[in-house]
Design a protein around this nucleic acid. Sequence first.
DNA 1: TTGGATCAATGGTCCAACCAATTGCATGAC
DNA 2: GTCATGCAATTGGTTGGACCATTGATCCAA
Lengths: 244, 244
Amino acid sequence: MSQVRLPPIQTTARDDAVLEALADFVQQETLQPGDKLPTERILAERLKVSRNTVREALTRWEGLGLVERLQGSGTFLKAAVSPHMLHMPLTLAGGNDFASLMQTLEVRRALEAEAVALCALRTGPQELNLIRHKLETMEVAFHRHAGMSSEEDWEFHQAIYRASGNPLFEQLIAAMHEMFHRFWEHPLGVRDFGHASFHYHRTIYERIAARDAEGARAEALKLIATVEADLRRGEAARNQARQV
Amino acid sequence: MSQVRLPPIQTTARDDAVLEALADFVQQETLQPGDKLPTERILAERLKVSRNTVREALTRWEGLGLVERLQGSGTFLKAAVSPHMLHMPLTLAGGNDFASLMQTLEVRRALEAEAVALCALRTGPQELNLIRHKLETMEVAFHRHAGMSSEEDWEFHQAIYRASGNPLFEQLIAAMHEMFHRFWEHPLGVRDFGHASFHYHRTIYERIAARDAEGARAEALKLIATVEADLRRGEAARNQARQV
DNA sequence: TTGGATCAATGGTCCAACCAATTGCATGAC
DNA sequence: GTCATGCAATTGGTTGGACCATTGATCCAA
């Protein structure tokens, strides 16, 4: 038991020290997402470490999505950084078959219902305007192309997750979205995929705007149900085609 | 629209290429977690890239928790790696323990309610027996130590997630559990933490055994509510202590 | 057998140079 | 004056080689 109280001493931890110093720097300079941080060469010189070490440290931050590196222009902050951040790698095993897609949908149903409800309780007028704007953009795209546009659809949902006041929802649903789309161009060959879900985007927005958490949750569940139905329809069509 | 069909060509993507090659290697050699992978120098030589590039690639994997590097010994696989896996870091802005804990709890509420409901619909007699066994073990531990035992409690919940028929739930909640416990030894100094949740473990089990999905969901929500209440109670006590 | 010294293997760091993409400025054609 | 062209500086990406620090195995002596 007592070993737990004796963590090994850290004689060297160069890159961690670099990141710590950099996090302090970001906070002291109150850098915002989008701002440019110092050159690798400058950091190396200032911190008295080799540029290589700086690069390894920045590679870690890049992997965490905190920073974006653009060759020729510089390294830019991509998310808010504070000295006491907690990072936790998430590893999800998935396949590209029907069952795996349904599993991502089940998780999405759980998360989205809760996120939408929290959003209805917490969102402020500013975030609400953003959500409405994304909704309208999506509706315009829908009518122009006579079908759901995944890009605008995704941005609408993202705006909601972001307004839920809990950043974990956005990150987790992004993971589900990634898994879902990794194997999905036009999902399993279904035409008009997502067509049935169109209507519920507006009803979700209206319930959120009305601060009706349970109503919003109910509409979100209906939306997911239409996606599930689309998926099942596609699977049925595939099975039929295979038998012929 | 047509730009979408013309993604920029990748003239260089060295470290990504390295990771891809390495993932293929791991799969072909069927390396398991704990196995040692080739030396950085060997990888650099075989892949015809500089050792520095290999290091940047491995740094990314290390950040995702896929790999562990031990100076003097080597680099070891820490988690299963396959091309079908999704690796994504979760970031929780720290600085405020209470808020962070509540955020993990909100996610847990969403996931657990759904998992319990699915479990009630899908679990077979064998998994049900396992759940009951875990429940009884937990109850014994509770009476012996006059308090909740996190270990047995966690195993009970894990058995439920595993019986939900969707492995994503177990993986996600494990991540939440891990985050929760990083903050939390005895959470914020609350005594008898989780005491109020004890009763609901059995009611959840009973609803699952009765195949009552919505009933099980309701009991799970009550359980989470007690944990939230404990957390708020601890936070209130801390605030009060700070003012004195 | 045990204890310590030695040494090879391996990840960690450093350096100096060059490559590749981007940006901005200057020059020049119209 | 305006716009295009092209050069040059900036900046991240890569390379090769060297050395440091830690680990683990091997060997030797007490």
